[in-house]
Design a protein around this nucleic acid. Structure first.
Length: 414
RNA sequence: GUGAUUGUAGCUCAGUUGGUUAGAGCGCCUGAUUGUGGUUCAGGAGGCCGCGGGUUCAAAUCCCGUCUUUCACCCCA
């Protein structure tokens, strides 16, 4: 790409042939599966009031504080491009009253985060996600994880790992934070400088610090789950037990930390080795989102489509496997045949057949080459002889055989 | 936001210590006696050397800025 005039913005990309075939496969199979699980599609606007995200994702989270595209519009309103799908979805469902409190919706949509691009991280990226509202129920969480695992299977992804943990109930937060702080206090001087700061701001972050030294210390102290109530631990056990019965393998990881404020109870993450530093292809959890005086409880997940695609490619699922390869190419020998073929093409397309042709007179050789590139199954040759005889010469591109057929025969065979 | 890294044909990339008309492979187009693709052979088209400035007799090559690529930190999907 020589000139920047033709480039999209930093961290954003155009998606076309050939990758688009993979995207289409992913979206088609997702829609089909969601319908099997009784989820309906919901499309919310990309742009929302800033407060929608501040309140549900959390005012102090990095996503809100430093990653959002937010701005003041001409009317002086504070707006933001959505950095994730849950907040807008819940905003919508909360407005639907009672039926919104017991709904199942899915979305496939672009999200925006103004970060420095990196492997598996774009400024405009795409998520497929679901939200199922309703009071906390371990079976709902299990079903949600099962759906997600099923989806990965449909796409043909292998080698992914589901890690699960819990954040407990709201009332568990304080005991967990206090417990961790107390446990870490004796090791304070051995923690990295970031963690010394985190211990006051957000203790949970110490738990998943990548620093080796911090990791060793964290291994010695109790996990967050140990400080939670009996009920919270029981809830997680039920989720894991149910999944086991359903034949779904998950790995309990008490050190799993999810950054968004709205999570309560079950949280999980799906990772894949092909990814690099950003190794999570998906994340999910149960949440309780406050909107006005209402708290909307639910469970949901989001998967990063770009990350799913790099994972798929690493296990041999690539775009060229989904190239359209049926269809017909019309070859016209002479001006009159060109017009005749326009008429035939129209008829074939009315029957739902993929059908292409050159729109100017070219050599037969050139037209055959195009037919080959278009990967069509059959070629119809139309010239003076055929028009005189009132038939079409049909060539099978794989076998190389030719036969004379009527238009009706062609339509029936295809 | 911090630290690295990249930019030359549609694609993947060469391009010597600055030196004349910037190359290759793939792809594309045209042909190899009548109206037949994939293979082969011959020929051809196609470059703001990311952009702007500077140094120099001379810059794809050196310097500065800017945009972009890729990667890591941070955080997340």
């Amino acid at each position: 790409m020589a000139s920047s005039e033709f480039q999209p913005l930093q961290g954003m990309s155009d998606i076309g042939v050939p990758e688009i075939w993979l995207w289409q496969m992913i979206e088609q199979r997702a829609r089909t599966l969601f319908s099997c699980y009784n989820y309906e599609e919901l499309r919310t606007p990309s742009l929302e009031k800033l407060s929608v995200f501040k309140r549900s994702i959390g005012d102090t989270t990095d996503v809100v504080q430093k990653e959002m595209y937010s701005f003041i519009d001409r009317g002086g309103r504070e707006l933001a491009l959505r950095p994730e799908g849950t907040a807008g979805t819940i905003r919508h469902l909360a407005g639907r009253g009672e039926e919104g409190l017991n709904a199942r919706v899915f979305y496939i949509a672009p999200m925006f985060r103004c970060e420095r691009p990196q492997a598996g991280r774009k400024r405009q990226f795409h998520q497929v996600g679901v939200e199922a509202t309703g009071v906390p129920n371990p079976l709902a969480d299990a079903e949600c994880i099962a759906l997600q695992q099923h989806l990965l299977e449909e796409w043909g992804l292998t080698g992914s790992k589901i890690q699960i943990s819990t954040r407990g109930e709201l009332s568990d937060r304080q005991p967990v934070a206090d417990g961790l702080r107390n446990a870490l206090q004796p090791h304070l001087s051995d923690l990295c400088s970031d963690c010394q700061r985190r211990i006051n701001e957000n203790v949970l972050r110490v738990i998943d610090c990548k620093n080796k030294n911090c990791g060793k210390i964290v291994d010695q102290i109790p996990s967050p789950v140990d400080f939670m109530s009996e009920e919270s631990r029981q809830y997680l056990d039920t989720v894991i037990h149910t999944l086991k019965k359903m034949g779904i393998e998950v790995e309990l990881n008490p050190k799993l930390v999810r950054g968004l404020d709205y999570y309560v109870h079950t949280v999980w993450e799906i990772t894949h080795g092909a990814l690099g530093a950003q190794n999570a292809i998906a994340g999910g959890g149960r949440y309780e989102i406050a909107l006005g005086k209402k708290g909307v409880p639910g469970v949901g997940f989001a998967m990063g489509m770009e990350r799913v695609i790099t994972s798929l490619e690493s296990c041999g699922v690539t775009a060229d496997q989904f190239v359209p390869s049926d269809g017909i190419w019309l070859i016209s020998l002479g001006e009159k045949a060109l017009i005749e073929n326009m008429k035939i093409a129209r008829k074939l397309r009315e029957k739902g057949l993929r059908c292409g042709m050159d729109l100017e007179v070219k050599s037969m050789k050139a037209q055959m080459r195009k037919a080959n590139k278009a990967r069509v199954k059959k070629v119809i040759i139309c010239g003076e002889d055929e028009m005189a005889k009132g038939i079409l010469l049909v060539k099978d591109m794989n076998e190389g055989s030719q036969e004379e057929l009527s238009l009706e025969d062609v339509i029936r065979d295809a």
